[in-house]
């Protein structure tokens, strides 16, 4: 099974990745190769097998409801591309 250009574009949109025009063919080719490769799993019989999400059988540890994190905004926002008055800025979102 091979992926079409449209499928690849749709996945790129879902993943918010811009693909350059020159990139698309190579991505279609390699992604198809990968999907074909993992398709061999389809032949495996997994009836009554439980999916495994974690390597260890542990349960979630819980944290006490305490406020432990101080305000570090000004320090942390040094990494931000664009801020104003303490807000992170993005191009105007139209709802």
């Amino acid at each position: 099974m091979s992926l079409t250009k449209q499928q690849v574009q749709h996945v790129a949109t879902l993943a918010r990745l811009e693909l350059e025009d020159g990139e698309v063919d190579d991505v279609v080719k390699k992604l198809s190769r990968i999907v074909d490769f993992v398709d061999q799993l389809q032949a495996v019989s997994t009836d009554d097998v439980l999916p495994m999400a974690h390597p260890l059988h542990m349960s979630q540890r819980l944290r006490a409801d305490d406020v432990t994190e101080p305000d570090q905004r000004d320090f942390v926002q040094q990494n931000a591309p664009s801020t104003e008055k303490g807000y992170y800025l993005v191009p105007k979102v139209i709802e």
Binding site: V38, L41, Q42, V44, T46, V49, L50, P51, M52
Partner: peptide, 12 residues
């Protein structure tokens, strides 16, 4: 077909 299947094979 893919993700859930892979999680099961992972179990195997």
């Amino acid at each position: 077909a893919y993700y859930l299947k892979a999680q099961k094979v992972r179990q195997l």
